[in-house]
């Protein structure tokens, strides 16, 4: 039970971070709340944002009467990301360590995929 609650709290923090990374500017708690796919209480969102800020995961700036939040990025983080990619692409090890969401596409794959995407984008979802 506590395991379940902890997992849910973790997933909520992750969802908030996703929203802030996807946005191109700092967001206020109501904006974050609106961008989340799951309906959540405003106070829950505000508490999560404050907690992530306290941990140093988020930066915040004053926006009128509220705060607007954005992901905190260390200067060296971008460099580290680059280094990680080269590490990950090294050798055969990665297959056992990580499962990548999408593998690389051939040019033929790309054509097929665009056709399939048109099918998937057709109206009539959730019939």
């Amino acid at each position: 039970m506590t395991e379940d609650i902890r997992r849910q709290a973790g997933e909520l923090e992750a969802a908030v971070l996703v929203v802030l990374w996807a946005a191109d500017r700092p967001l206020t708690p109501p904006e974050v709340q609106a961008a989340l796919t799951e309906p959540l209480a405003r106070t829950t969102v505000a508490t999560t944002l404050a907690r992530l800020h306290a941990k140093g995961t988020l930066d915040r700036v004053r926006a009128g009467r509220a705060y607007a939040y954005s992901p905190a990025v260390e200067d060296r983080a971008a460099l580290a990301a680059q280094r990680m990619h080269t590490e990950l692409d090294k050798g055969d090890d990665r297959q056992g360590v990580l499962a990548r969401f999408v593998s690389r596409l051939s040019s033929a794959d790309e054509i097929v995929l665009r056709e399939l995407l048109e099918q998937a984008a057709e109206p009539g979802e959730r019939s």
């Binding site: 992750a14 971070l17 580290a80 990619h85 990548r100």
Partner: peptide
């Protein structure tokens, strides 16, 4: 040292990738 919350880590990289 990367942006991390819950079970998620975000890399500040413009290339699209996920693991």
């Amino acid at each position: 040292g990367h942006s991390r919350a819950g079970d998620l880590t975000v890399l500040p990289d413009e290339g699209a990738d996920a693991y």
